[in-house]
Each structure stands twice: as structure tokens, then as C-alpha cells.
Amino acid sequence: MTFTILIITTRKAGLSPAEFRNEVERIIIPFMKELLGENFPLSHTRRYLKRNESPKAEGNTERNPTTPATVFMGTQADFDYDSVSELTFADQAHFSAFIGQMQQPEIAARIGEAEAKAVDVSKNKIVVVGSIETTMKG
């Protein structure tokens, strides 16, 4: 049975949403994939919030004064983060191997250096997913 976690990530102050995405996609993820090898998740799906340049949007936040999220329900403050990632592992043992490798001092330091350029790690949130249900059209 697969094991899945969700990570909510916030970009570092001073970085645009496009710069954040570019840093994650071109530097951090390829670097982690190379470093972790077989312990990298089966899949690592990233979903970036849609943000638009809008200096006068109502409810802009201090973190996103000119890049409000496209919100249909809720407030800008509810969506002050930048991405939601879903990491899927073969099973809990695979996840444990991943975490064990991530916590090795040398690897943790190298990943920390890569993330420091783009991610405000103090705002990261990580949770284990329970059941996953999908409803398809038709």
C-alpha cells in the first residue's frame, strides 16, 4: 500500500513566484532526485498557486503585496503559501528510508543549502495523507 505525504511550501521573501518555481524545478528537484537515488519518492507532484501581477488587488498580503492568488473562496491570507506537493512512496518502509537519508547530516546540509535560496523552510507544513479517494467523470 502506498504512503503519501503533502508538503505546503512558501517561497523566500523577495523571490517572485516565477523565480521560486524556476528554482524548485530546475535546481532543487533534480538535485534531490540525484542525491536520494532509489529513496526518491515514486512520484513528487508539485502544484503551484496561480498568482497574477496586481498591485491594487483587494486583500493583498504583506508577503504577496503585488501577486495575489486566484481565490474563489476564502481570503488572500488563507493562500499565502506558494505550492502544495504530493509525495508518494511505495510503502511506509520506502518513506522511512527517504526520511533516514534526508536526515543524514551531509545530505541534510546539502539539501538545506539548495532550499535556502528559494524556500522559507520555517513556514513549511508536512502531513501524512490517510485514505485517497478519486471520483471520475462518467
Rank of each mutant, 00 (worst) to 15 (best):
T4Q: 07
T9M: 15
T10A: 03
T10N: 00
R11C: 05
K12L: 05
G14K: 13
G14Y: 11
L15C: 07
S16H: 07
P17Q: 03
R21S: 12
R21P: 10
N22H: 00
E23A: 15
E25C: 12
R26A: 08
R26P: 05
I28E: 14
M32E: 14
M32P: 10
M32N: 09
K33V: 04
E34R: 12
L35R: 15
L36W: 04
F40M: 13
F40D: 05
F40R: 06
L42A: 14
S43I: 11
S43L: 06
H44A: 00
Y48H: 13
Y48P: 14
K50T: 15
K50M: 13
N52E: 09
K56I: 15
A57R: 02
A57K: 06
N60G: 01
N60W: 02
R63H: 09
T66Q: 07
A69V: 05
T70Q: 11
V71P: 01
F72D: 03
M73L: 08
T75I: 09
T75N: 15
Q76R: 06
D78L: 11
F79L: 15
D80N: 07
Y81M: 06
D82Q: 04
S85D: 08
S85G: 14
E86C: 08
T88M: 09
F89T: 03
A90V: 11
D91Q: 00
A93M: 06
H94C: 14
F95G: 03
F95L: 03
A97E: 10
A97S: 09
F98L: 06
F98R: 10
I99Y: 12
G100Q: 04
G100I: 01
M102N: 10
Q104A: 09
P105I: 01
E106Y: 02
I107V: 15
A108N: 05
I111L: 10
E115P: 01
K117L: 02
A118K: 04
A118V: 02
V119L: 13
V119D: 09
D120P: 00
D120Y: 05
D120Q: 06
V121S: 14
S122M: 09
N124P: 02
N124H: 03
N124D: 14
N124I: 07
V127I: 00
V129M: 11
I132Y: 07
E133K: 12
T134G: 12
T134S: 11
T134R: 15
T135Y: 14
T135E: 11
M136V: 10
M136I: 03
M136R: 15
K137D: 11
